[in-house]
Design a binder for these strands. Structure first.
Lengths: 147, 147
DNA sequence: TCGGATTGCTCAGTGCACTGACTAATTCGA
DNA sequence: TCGAATTAGTCAGTGCACTGAGCAATCCGA
């Protein structure tokens, strides 16, 4: 049985793309705060005082993963977790001043990093790449919803 | 500080793409054998009896990760690790009959899965997506090489 | 209103992926 | 040839990401 060329495997390319991004992130943005953590801080700037599950859904992290991640952010004093008095099941998340400060600092660095990351492509190609990825990911997430 | 839209962040999209792929993989290809594991089996079909580091480099896994992964494959009896008698530092990897069998079975399933994964795109768009990802990943891996 | 279903969270377990430290084997230059 | 540098592998530690089980709070229909 012939072995297939890995460069035709979207899964392998997706993994390489993410690895490449993580590498660049840690060197150009932050060693302490990861990209998914930044996504959560970002989401909390957009919609403050949102419950954990909703934030997780927004940044596409499942219950377990968002719980772990938030625990780390809370441990570093960037967010606070408070049980919702109106609904005892929910954890409401709040950015601390320190969390806001970290977020602010990373916004500019992230923009700089994204430029370097996509530097091999021209402006049109960048748009196309992001759009195509979004379409594939959206469709797969649809499938998931239907189970 | 305004929060940026996540859909413009290539890192976030890359993560979503990989998550989507993993989800489809486990439902359509295998629950036991992961996509990176398949990549290793595939590499061993291409170049039998190669040492662990070379295989890892080929599938883009670092020393630690390939070691863990190969240990799992060895535990399931799909590959064998033998110390190279000519160079006592190397682990030479060999596919077992069972490993070859598993690989053969997954090749067709993977092809089927890739079709579904990329179904939202037309033929031209698929090519473009794969090429653009490869260019970005290649460039980032170049940066890495230079430190 | 009360009991079953749903919802939100946590915990345990598994796997990918990285860094940094360590060991052992090999290589190469003075 | 011998010692320093390089190379391959392992191990410990951290973080992302998922499943499946379990628990407590809430919701909703008979």
């Amino acid at each position: 049985m012939a072995a297939a060329d890995l460069s035709t495997h979207p899964g392998h390319l997706a993994r390489r793309l993410q690895q490449a991004h993580t590498l660049l992130w840690t060197t150009m943005v932050s060693e302490e705060t990861t990209s998914p953590q930044f996504a959560v801080l970002n989401a909390l700037v957009e919609k403050p005082d949102t419950d954990q599950r909703t934030i997780g859904e927004h940044v596409r992290l499942d219950r377990s993963t968002i719980a772990d991640l938030v625990a780390r952010l809370a441990g570093r004093g960037l967010v606070e977790r408070v049980r919702d008095p109106l609904d005892g099941r929910r954890n409401v998340l709040t950015l601390t001043d320190e969390g806001r400060k970290v977020h602010r600092r990373l916004v500019t660095r992230t923009a700089r990093m994204n430029k370097v990351f996509l530097a091999p492509l021209d402006e049109g190609e960048r748009e196309i790449l992001l759009r195509l990825i979004a379409r594939v990911a959206d469709a797969a997430e649809e499938l998931r919803g239907q189970g």
